[in-house]
Amino acid sequence: MREDMLASILSDLNGSSADIEASAVISTDGLIMASLLPANLDEDRVGAMSAAMLSLGDRTASELTRGSLEMVLIKGSQGYVVMTHAGEEAVVSVQAKSTAKLGLVFLDIKRAAEAISKVI
């Protein structure tokens, strides 16, 4: 039931913008709760790596006196990875195209994260 609701939120998120290529909801321990990922990506790796990056982002924001973490953004030549908390126990990880309009993507991710935190 909860998994279906999370999958539905991810489906809405991926459908909200053509810029978003993949997304996943992950526990803070790095385990996948729900995902819409391309077949060439390993769920376990995406989950563990995203949670690890967010954890490191938390610590970096704190150490460098940037306040509480809002998101971690990674820009690669092929596109973006955006990670943010969804409540205290989950992480949302989103992959977007290199041409993505980041403002809109951030807004969509924020809405999805709020919805996910309510479900969890």
Binding site: T28, D29, G30, L31, D42, D44, R45, G47, A48, M49, A51, A52, S55, L56, D58, R59
Partner: peptide, 17 residues
């Protein structure tokens, strides 16, 4: 301690690779 990662997260990361 430095990264703030839990032991479980580290184990899951190691297991994924």
């Amino acid at each position: 301690k430095i990264t703030g990662m839990s032991r479980t997260l580290f184990d899951n990361l190691a297991s994924a690779y």
